[in-house]
Simulated assay, not measured.
Amino acid sequence: MGLHPRGPGTRRPWRSAVTAATLMTLIAGAAAGCGSDTGDKAAATQAAGAAKDRLAATPALAELVAAAKKEGALDLNWGFDGRDTGKVLTDTFKRAYGLDIKITLTPNQNQPGNAAKLAQEYKAKSPASTDAYLGSPELVLGLGPKRDDVLAKVDWTAFAPWTKGLANNDGSALTFVDLIPGFTYNTTQLAQNAVPATAQDVLKVGKPVASTPYAAQFNVLGTKEGMGADGLRAYLKGFKAAGFLGCGELNRIASGEFAAMWISCGKNIADVFAAQGAPLKTAVLKDAAITSTRYAAVPKNARHPNAAKLWVSWLLTPEAQKIVFEHDFADNHRVAGSRTAGQLAEYEKQGVKFTRVDYEFTLAHPELYNPKFKGELVSLLTNK
């Protein structure tokens, strides 16, 4: 049985006994299509009107659109958390700029694998397999001018003035969305008064708590302001994960196989599942609160660089960001109208202090991203 788009606020009953086909759909990150056909059509109309105004006001943008039309195509190896997010975005993008180009969107959430492939292709002087890259701060830094130098430095505001303040400090990438990792749990397995408020409370949960096999985000807790490196090592020795899941395998939490996941990759992923009726929520723990930014960038060896720049910059328009949140439940807190910004503000009112993990944070904390240190954390977590 497939899962179909449903509007925000709607729910479908969740059962622990699900078919193999449904499980595969969920694991692939296609758990839900949120939003609605009516809402998507309205968003497309709004995007077209806004693009018309921007084109009239910015000659450089009009020139970029013309260049993208000449290229005639856009190839993307990208992954989204909602089932229909990519299609709705690419369709709306084409309508916004009046593009009759072929967009090939290959669903792929393997950001490390994509980054490694791009680095190999650039070194071999081969065309990039994707015209635009989507990845974490650590991966974008690795592809950036300070490391493998794969990504093009772009003067984004020259043709997309709305991106002012949205690029990393060397112009090689634009901030795209902000994720909020946390303690994702099954509401039928843990009562509200049993949900941990701190990282130490997680150690006291009396039900099976899973984690990722790659210790996602745990390294960030090793800052001097956080647990510190030694404190983090001691913490992981005391945290006994009951199993290991990928970021998108929250169906195994929803089914009751595990009661929770710590640290999950983003509360928005649980929200996507919850929109389909899965009994999932995410708690943001006061002493271990993190935001993790995802970036979009264009490789120097992109086959269609103009279409790629147009795509990446358009994703930062308020219209595109609205679509992203409607389908993926996450957006960029720096963009006007961001709903993630509202969520962060609510948490901060409750006394939560976030560690903002972005390109600049990663650059400033090389010790947290040292392969030896990260490997040690994985060994402690997995007991290997």
Score class of each variant (00 low, 15 high):
residue 63 E to K: 14
residue 197 A to G: 13
residue 166 L to E: 07
residue 135 G to M: 00
residue 49 G to V: 08
residue 165 G to E: 02
residue 363 L to F: 08
residue 52 K to I: 12
residue 77 N to E: 03
residue 43 A to I: 05
residue 81 D to F: 07
residue 98 G to T: 08
residue 8 P to M: 09
residue 132 A to F: 07
residue 198 T to E: 01
residue 349 K to A: 05
residue 348 E to K: 13
residue 257 E to C: 11
residue 7 G to E: 15
residue 155 D to C: 01
residue 341 A to R: 14
residue 374 K to V: 04
residue 43 A to H: 04
residue 276 Q to V: 09
residue 303 R to P: 00
residue 269 I to K: 07
residue 333 H to I: 04
residue 245 L to G: 09
residue 150 V to R: 15
residue 86 G to C: 01
residue 335 V to S: 06
residue 350 Q to W: 06
residue 26 L to G: 11
residue 269 I to C: 08
residue 38 T to Y: 02
residue 153 K to P: 00
residue 73 A to M: 14
residue 382 T to H: 09
residue 249 E to M: 11
residue 150 V to A: 10
residue 216 A to M: 04
residue 188 T to A: 12
residue 126 S to K: 15
residue 182 G to F: 01
residue 226 G to C: 10
residue 198 T to D: 04
residue 327 H to V: 13
residue 226 G to S: 10
residue 243 G to V: 03
residue 356 R to P: 01
residue 257 E to A: 12
residue 332 N to L: 07
residue 106 T to V: 12
residue 192 Q to P: 04
residue 110 N to A: 04
residue 50 A to S: 10
residue 368 L to V: 11
residue 339 R to W: 02
residue 176 F to C: 12
residue 224 K to H: 09
residue 262 W to F: 12
residue 159 F to W: 00
residue 113 G to K: 15
residue 302 A to W: 02
residue 57 A to Q: 14
residue 146 K to D: 08
residue 207 K to A: 05
residue 309 K to A: 04
residue 125 K to V: 00
residue 148 D to I: 08
residue 69 K to A: 06
residue 280 L to V: 11
residue 319 E to Y: 15
residue 56 A to T: 14
residue 236 L to V: 10
residue 272 V to Y: 03
residue 349 K to E: 01
residue 326 E to G: 09
residue 340 T to N: 09
residue 90 T to Q: 00
residue 310 L to P: 02
residue 197 A to Q: 15
residue 263 I to Q: 11
residue 131 D to T: 11
residue 364 A to Y: 07
residue 341 A to V: 02
residue 363 L to S: 06
residue 241 A to D: 02
residue 58 T to V: 13
residue 105 L to G: 07
residue 326 E to V: 05
residue 246 G to E: 00
residue 64 L to S: 09
residue 96 A to M: 05
residue 159 F to C: 00
residue 249 E to K: 12
residue 193 N to P: 02
residue 142 G to K: 08
residue 369 Y to Q: 10
residue 260 A to I: 09
residue 287 D to N: 09
residue 45 T to D: 09
residue 350 Q to C: 01
residue 286 K to D: 00
residue 106 T to I: 07
residue 10 T to R: 13
residue 183 F to A: 08
residue 282 T to V: 00
residue 377 L to C: 10
residue 111 Q to F: 03
residue 260 A to R: 14
residue 104 T to E: 12
residue 96 A to I: 07
residue 188 T to Q: 15
residue 9 G to I: 06
residue 315 L to R: 06
residue 75 D to F: 01
residue 247 C to L: 06
residue 363 L to P: 07
residue 289 A to T: 08
residue 204 K to C: 03
residue 310 L to R: 11
residue 275 A to G: 14
residue 353 K to H: 08
residue 162 W to H: 15
residue 200 Q to I: 10
residue 169 N to M: 11
residue 156 W to R: 13
residue 41 K to D: 09
residue 374 K to R: 15
residue 212 T to Y: 07
residue 53 D to C: 10
residue 266 G to M: 10
residue 328 D to Q: 15
residue 297 A to S: 13
residue 15 R to P: 05
residue 229 A to Q: 15
residue 145 P to H: 04
residue 196 P to V: 00
residue 78 W to L: 13
residue 25 T to G: 07
residue 251 N to R: 13
residue 90 T to K: 05
residue 225 E to D: 06
residue 49 G to S: 12
residue 343 Q to A: 01
residue 83 R to D: 03
residue 36 S to L: 05
residue 169 N to T: 15
residue 179 L to I: 03
residue 60 A to I: 02
residue 339 R to N: 04
residue 152 A to C: 01
residue 6 R to S: 07
residue 350 Q to P: 03
residue 331 D to E: 05
residue 44 A to M: 06
residue 207 K to F: 00
residue 255 S to T: 14
residue 268 N to D: 08
